[in-house]
Computed example of a mutant assay.
Amino acid sequence: MIQYSLKCEQGHSFDSWFQSASAFDKLQAAGHVACAVCGSADVKKALMAPRVTASDKAAEEPASPQQPLSAPANPAEQAIAEMKAHVEANSDYVGGDFAQEARAMHLGDVPERSIWGEARGDEAKALIEEGIPVAPLPFTPTRKSN
């Protein structure tokens, strides 16, 4: 795994992990690397400083983290955390039934409400083609059921 510092055309900086340098190159060439803040696909590697230890003793001792792992590390992560909290507090998680629930609401078979969940790529594409408004979320569920 390799971590890159990335920057989009709008100047947003963010980090992302990739399986390898060539995996990054393939994903970027295919347009699958997007800004975590604005969604722009015009993303470049940013200048990064190598991680170098000053002595053998420093290499043996694990570095103390600057923040707990669960705390957002930058404004983009903070915005995503706030969005996740808002979505979880103000909508119903329907899990893998997302496509069926969204379609049923669109057709008027069930009352409209705010929902979120999981859908396969082909299911999401079909919803869009049917004119059902959906959008991907930049996070995974905290829990798998209500």
Rank of each mutant, 00 (worst) to 15 (best):
59 A>N: 08
24 F>I: 00
23 A>I: 06
104 A>T: 04
33 V>L: 07
26 K>G: 10
53 T>D: 10
62 P>L: 11
69 L>H: 00
46 A>T: 04
90 N>L: 02
52 V>I: 14
51 R>M: 03
36 A>T: 04
25 D>A: 15
96 G>N: 06
85 A>E: 13
91 S>H: 05
55 S>H: 04
26 K>S: 07
107 L>M: 10
102 A>Y: 05
20 S>T: 14
73 A>K: 07
75 P>W: 00
68 P>A: 06
35 C>Q: 07
26 K>F: 08
69 L>T: 06
108 G>R: 00
37 V>W: 15
84 K>C: 11
64 S>M: 09
102 A>W: 04
99 A>L: 03
108 G>V: 00
25 D>Y: 02
40 S>R: 03
22 S>N: 13
60 E>V: 03
90 N>V: 01
94 V>S: 09
42 D>T: 14
47 L>H: 11
68 P>M: 01
94 V>I: 14
103 R>V: 03
106 H>C: 04
86 H>K: 13
67 Q>T: 04
22 S>C: 07
46 A>C: 07
81 A>L: 06
24 F>Q: 07
34 A>K: 11
62 P>H: 01
33 V>Y: 02
43 V>N: 15
45 K>N: 04
39 G>Q: 00
62 P>R: 10
79 A>R: 13
49 A>Q: 08
32 H>C: 10
70 S>Q: 12
94 V>E: 09
53 T>G: 06
21 A>W: 02
69 L>R: 06
48 M>C: 10
